[in-house]
């Protein structure tokens, strides 16, 4: 159903956008998410390279309140499905550029072990691909990853049972530092 809908969006707006040499609407996101969706700010996530379906689902979750936000819920409410589809199309075609940020090598090495054991079945290929819901983790900003994980841990946001069990297992084995090491691993991907 979603797929059909996105296709329809392309048919109605694609012509105008192409004639204009690019749709300018996604430009409104740049203030916080960076030019072309690549964030130069250390807390806002890069949204370039996100699959259209993932993008649309995120925006819907913001609208319904299924995903907590600092202000994205209040913004998502103002945009139509058509506009969200156009934005999703735009960012899906922009390359994800990994953040250049300092990470703790020893911690990342330890985190790799946890990531492979508990995260890799959904966050495939070391979190470098967006294959639907999870989004790209590799090279995402560390502050943002911490914020999200904190929301998941505290139960502010609902997550799949498998992920909750994974987090609990890591906490049991290595405490909060264990979780941080997983984030260090994903953030350190160059």
């Amino acid at each position: 159903m979603l797929f059909v809908w996105v296709g329809a969006v392309l048919m109605t707006t694609g012509v105008v956008a192409a004639t204009l040499g690019g749709d300018r609407l996604p430009g409104v996101c740049a203030g916080c998410h960076g030019e072309e969706g690549v964030s130069a700010g250390s807390a806002t996530p890069t949204i370039a390279g996100t699959k259209t379906e993932t993008f649309v689902q995120r925006m819907r979750d913001f609208k319904t309140g299924n995903r907590t936000a600092t202000l994205m819920d209040r913004i998502a409410n103002g945009y139509t499905d058509d506009e969200i589809g156009r934005m999703g199309e735009y960012f899906s075609k922009r390359p994800f550029e990994r953040a250049q940020q300092p990470t703790d090598r020893a911690m990342a090495e330890r985190g790799k072990h946890f990531a492979e054991q508990y995260c890799a079945s959904c966050h495939e290929e070391a979190g470098t691909v967006d294959d639907g819901r999870p989004g790209i983790l590799a090279g995402q900003w560390l502050s943002y990853l911490r914020f999200r994980l904190e929301d998941y841990r505290l139960g502010v946001d609902r997550i799949p049972k498998k992920m909750r069990l994974g987090i609990e297992s890591i906490l049991h084995e290595a405490g909060v530092e264990g979780l941080e090491s997983v984030l260090q691993f994903y953030a350190s991907q160059k």
Partner: peptide, 12 residues
């Protein structure tokens, strides 16, 4: 997020 916004807008 506020500081991140500043970094992004000035970078852009």
């Amino acid at each position: 997020y506020a500081h991140s916004w500043y970094q992004n807008i000035t970078h852009a």
